[in-house]
Design a protein around this nucleic acid. Structure first.
Lengths: 234, 234
DNA sequence: GTCTATATCATGATAGAC
DNA sequence: GTCTATCATGATATAGAC
């Protein structure tokens, strides 16, 4: 999809990308300085500008290295599923599993970035910098359109606007689940053991998301929520 | 709950907090410099250190001003609902609406921070800086424990571990929905009109979350997800 | 309490020797 | 391609006049 993603990398470039992936996650893009990055990578301070041109370009390279192959894989998986079904619409849970599974498989595969990149990614969806979010959105756009069509075909009776909102909710649940590290302990009061077991998490997430996607459509009365209406809803 | 939250503020402090709320959202905590903040507030560069002690302390003050009253309100609402029901367990959707509604009502109330603060908050759950996340977690802890108990009472048959995961998913969906500004356009291909209508959003979110919370519990076979098992699930 | 002026330091980027 | 040395800039924080 993008030449940069498949161009063989110089070893120095790879070491810089690895260091950046880790330190961007720990300190954010502004917080991780070029001095920190090059020190961790064991290369010279000038190497980032030499190999990538600027710190901004490095940020983009960090995401391209992982996301271009990931989204290609995601789309290919959906293609395979649709071909296997022979034209019959796929079950919503199947489509969800294809999307979620690709992300979760990255957690267990260090060559695909592992847990560190997936957490960095989850955080970046809501980064303050608009250009960062725009970059992520651009890298996701083809896969997003492809999956939206698949869901629309699987749920022809669901109003298109409701579908869009629910995809938004689903994407949010996924990205937050991947990014968050503290809320779970806060709720649980302890550290669950299977937290990063991709297979178990995939089942939990798919069950939750599929139920939400198939929820009854709320009637739109347009009324404001008040303390009284909330109480009466009990 | 905290004296600082109810201590009457000097006007300069208020103007600094207002400026910080807006600029932290646009540029992040590292990206918004004290020069930017004081310029926007129309106060002197030294005023932040004089009134708050440091930039870090200002960050904390920004969140305390909004979250302490918000979580007190959230808990009070749950108390009221439980008292009104006279000991009978509440419907899960009612508890969800109490939690979600409090956040969404902030969007429409400029005195409570409005849309800007709620987006800042949503982003901060996944902030790179650990001390920032710890602060947010600490401010939320009492409300979180209170709502967890209410859900446990409403859903005695749901395994406790599954409940914890689902609360995690729900909190994620809410925080992402409040924070994200681009994904929705990306999915929809256009800007939905009712995007910030709190009443409509509350209905959509509650329907989605309630369905997810009540989803059938997936059986835990412990098997890894493979390409083949995913395909067969279709 | 507010302001100016400044101290001190870290940042991203680059020039030029090797 | 890699290094050292350095630049210009902007950061947080503070000292001291008013």
């Amino acid at each position: 999809m993008n030449l940069r993603a498949i161009k063989p990398l110089h070893e120095t470039q790879t070491r810089i990308l690895d260091a950046a992936e880790e330190l961007f996650m720990q300190h954010g893009f502004e917080g991780a300085s070029m001095r920190m990055l090059t020190a961790r990578a064991g290369v010279n301070l000038a190497a980032i500008n030499y190999h990538f041109g600027s710190k901004d370009a490095l940020v983009e390279a960090v995401f391209r290295r992982r996301l271009d192959p990931e989204n290609a894989e995601r789309i290919a998986e959906l293609d395979r599923l649709e071909k296997a079904s022979g034209g019959a619409p796929l079950a919503p849970a199947t489509i969800i599993r294809a999307f979620v599974g690709t992300s979760l498989r990255m957690i267990q595969d260090e060559k695909k970035g592992g847990r560190n990149f997936i957490r960095l990614l989850g955080r970046t969806y809501t980064d303050p910098a608009k250009r960062i979010r725009a970059l992520i959105g651009q890298l996701y756009a083809p896969a997003m359109a492809r999956f939206k069509d698949a869901f629309a075909k699987a749920l022809p009776e669901l109003p298109r606007e409701e579908l869009v909102w629910r995809l938004h909710f689903m994407f949010g649940t996924l990205s937050y689940t991947l990014a968050a590290t503290d809320t779970l302990e806060l709720i649980a009061g302890c550290k669950p053991e299977d937290r990063y077991d991709a297979a178990v998490l995939e089942s939990r997430l798919t069950a939750f998301l599929a139920a939400g996607l198939l929820a009854p459509v709320p009637q739109r009365t347009g009324q404001r929520a008040t303390d009284e209406s909330v109480k009466q809803a009990a």
